[in-house]
């Protein structure tokens, strides 16, 4: 536990001295704000709908998942590997699991921080729509966002353990997230168990029909948490396999 904490703390701190993380945080918040602003503008001009928190979450999820997660997790293990500092960590009295878990925890704290910063947007929205935003959806939506980023950043850390090159890690993580995003679609073409499996694996399935409509269902929480645990477990195996090469 101590080791996990030491590694996570350093990982987290490193974001705040790295211009990339600041830049990314800035771009993410800007994109979110931009989306929301356009949405509100469009709503007031067309009068077609009232901007609500559901729409806001749907807008938020894209830059978070498809930009922040790959770009933040790409560095975690690939860069240690390239710079040779992995040799330092692997010869310190730290297990491979502690290393991978600590790395993930540090990045996860970073995402929690950035997600917490996005809270300003619902608050702004709350002040301009009448009678305010749905508090239940606000809470469940944020729980969902945090769980999704937890699982996807675990995959990012796993992918990063395969590479020495950060860009390669970024692209593959990006690809895997897209895969989990769309994996539910072919479920309509097949039926039976295959369809169930595809639907179960789908990221969106566990978000749109639950967290986004104000539900916190145990099966969805289990889905994201087990995905996190499996990815991190595979990550520690991947680090160990590296030693045997």
């Amino acid at each position: 536990m101590h080791n996990i904490w030491v590694i996570a703390k350093r990982e987290y701190k490193l974001f705040f001295i790295s211009p990339i993380a600041y830049g990314l945080l800035f771009v993410t918040l800007l994109t979110l704000g931009g989306f929301l602003f356009l949405d509100i503008l469009y709503a007031t001009q067309t009068q077609a709908f009232v901007p609500n928190i559901q729409r806001t979450f749907q807008l938020f999820i894209f830059p978070l998942l498809f930009l922040s997660v790959p770009a933040i997790t790409m560095r975690t293990l690939a860069e240690e590997n390239r710079a040779g500092t992995l040799e330092l960590l692997l010869t310190a009295p730290v297990t491979d699991w502690e290393l991978v878990f600590g790395k993930w925890l540090g990045t996860f704290f970073f995402f929690v921080t950035s997600i917490a910063l996005t809270l300003v947007y619902p608050l702004i929205l709350n002040s301009i729509v009448d009678p305010g935003i749905d508090q239940g959806v606000l809470i469940s939506g944020y729980i969902g966002l945090i769980l999704i980023t937890a699982a996807m950043s675990a995959i990012g850390v796993l992918v990063s353990s395969f590479f020495r090159n950060q860009v390669a890690a970024l692209l593959v993580t990006f690809g895997v997230i897209i895969l989990f995003w769309v994996i539910g679609s072919p479920a309509q073409l097949v039926d039976g168990v295959a369809a169930d499996v595809l639907r179960y694996l789908s990221l969106t399935e566990h978000f749109y029909d639950s967290f986004l409509i104000g539900l916190v269902r145990i099966q969805d929480v289990v889905y994201y948490l087990s995905m996190t645990a499996i990815a991190l477990f595979l990550g520690s195996i991947s680090v160990e396999a590296r030693r045997w090469r």
Partner: peptide, 24 residues
Amino acid sequence: PETVPLYPDLSVFEYLKFMADLRK
């Protein structure tokens, strides 16, 4: 190690403090 494993973004003190913490 042969290629000295260092974090260029950390100060000498921070780096050694991190390693000292890892080694309890």
